[in-house]
């Protein structure tokens, strides 16, 4: 009896080792997708933990500007947004392709977050399923920018890989808000940053040279500085997400293993792990974006 149990248990361990270390994740992901089963326990627990956390450790605000400066900037931005909206409407009217992009929210569905990853990875569990039209690799957004991407989904739950997870990477661009410029922002002409999740709620960029950062004295280059923002600019993502904010530069230091390159740490504008609901872009047909790009390519050829 003991010998038979040992054989069974060793067999189970071998299967687990194969699954964890050998098989690709997309094979075993088909067996997952039952996160929502734990919602009756996790959601009230999360609500209690969230309210206690907010009392004990309220969110810090790093903006030290006085209220009058903030109000002046808000007024300038409000006028700028109205002007840009008018220009965008006119462009949409002229070009049919842009009609198909439009406001991102119309392509999204809101879902409640039922909890975080119990192993500490950067992910959220959603009360969403394949019956809601949620599929793998669909972008996930919040009002403040990109949250992540659907990693796997089943009949009773979906899991979001956050942009701060160590296995997430995307191309972006650094930008600086400048109310004096024509469109309100200035995209910095640095090398294209490869933005990776660093864990613990942070992103990092390691492929920018020191001379392209504010740590260098080079007067001729546009340089990244603390306080600049990072936006999504990646051809592998839907075009109407281009420009979505990923976060704000928090620190710039020299890489210890590569002194010519900077280690740029970026923090998302909100704590992604404490979100209560997110928007999943589950209504955008991917071939819509492909048709738009094919049409523009054909127009260019002619």
């Amino acid at each position: 009896m003991r010998l038979r149990f040992n054989q069974v248990f060793v067999g189970l361990l071998v299967l687990a080792i194969l699954s964890a270390f050998v098989l690709p994740a997309d094979i075993t992901n088909r067996l997952r997708g039952f996160q929502a089963i734990f919602a009756p326990v996790s959601r009230p627990t999360r609500a209690v933990a969230s309210s206690v956390h907010d009392r004990i450790a309220p969110r810090l605000h790093h903006d030290t500007r006085n209220a009058d400066d903030v109000k002046d900037e808000n007024e300038q931005l409000r006028v700028l947004v109205m002007s840009l909206s008018g220009q965008l409407d006119e462009l949409r009217r002229v070009t049919n392709d842009l009609d198909q992009l439009g406001d991102v929210k119309q392509h999204c569905t809101r879902f409640k977050v039922i909890g975080g990853d119990p192993s500490g990875r950067g992910s959220l569990l959603l009360a969403a399923s394949t019956r809601d039209g949620v599929r793998e690799a669909q972008p996930v957004l919040s009002g403040q920018g990109l949250v992540g991407v659907i990693d796997h989904v089943g009949l009773a739950g979906a899991q979001v890989r956050l942009i701060t997870d160590r296995d997430f990477k995307v191309s972006g661009r650094f930008l600086r808000f400048d109310t004096k410029s024509k469109n309100g922002e200035q995209t910095l002409a640095t090398k294209i940053p490869l933005v990776r999740g660093a864990g613990n709620g942070l992103l990092e960029v390691q492929n920018i040279e020191m001379k392209e950062t504010a740590l260098s004295d080079d007067p001729l280059k546009e340089k990244v500085a603390v306080g600049d923002y990072v936006k999504l600019e990646d051809p592998l993502w839907p075009p109407n997400l281009s420009g979505k904010l990923l976060g704000q530069v928090e620190t710039i230091t020299q890489q210890s293993g590569a002194p010519q390159h900077a280690l740029i740490r970026i923090r998302p504008l909100i704590d992604l792990l404490q979100l209560h609901e997110v928007m999943v872009m589950n209504k955008l047909e991917t071939n819509t974006a492909q048709v738009a790009s094919e049409k523009s390519a054909a127009t260019t050829d002619h």
Binding site: L15, A20, L23, T28, N29, R32, F38, D117
Partner: peptide, 13 residues
């Protein structure tokens, strides 16, 4: 394992 991003089987081991 069914509720994490980690691969299936990791926490079983």
């Amino acid at each position: 394992d069914m509720t994490t991003l980690s691969p299936l089987g990791l926490y079983a081991i």
